[in-house]
């Protein structure tokens, strides 16, 4: 891959993440800060719309409201709550068959 293609690939990724003009942000920070803040609001709205689908399911099921309501901060679960009910350490092998997990 040539250098230019690499730049284009990075530019695509960054543009997808936040479509704003970096040079204008650097030269006119006050004006651009407002625009970027508006963009963040739009992204937040889109995220909220996605979350609203889950919330609609939660609200339709009355029993879910009691004991399994969706948390406001939807985060990934820790490793312990979903861990299988088994030993937390693996079996030890002797000699050359030592197993590194």
């Amino acid at each position: 891959m040539s250098t230019t293609e690499g730049y284009i690939r990075y530019a695509e990724q960054y543009y997808r993440a936040l479509p704003c003009d970096w040079i204008s942000c650097a030269l006119k920070p006050l004006e651009q800060q407002k625009k970027v803040a508006e963009m963040h609001k739009i992204f937040d709205r889109q995220k909220n719309q996605q979350n609203a689908v889950f919330e609609a399911v939660d609200t339709n099921l009355s029993f879910c409201q009691k004991w399994a309501r969706r948390d406001l901060n939807s985060r990934p679960t820790g490793y312990q709550p979903v861990a299988p009910t088994d030993l937390s350490y693996g079996p030890r092998c002797e000699g050359d068959n030592t197993l590194f997990l």
């Binding site: 479509p19 704003c20 003009d21 650097a26």
Partner: peptide
């Protein structure tokens, strides 16, 4: 990268 984004 900034100038590429500007052209986009």
């Amino acid at each position: 990268v900034a100038r590429l984004i500007r052209t986009r």
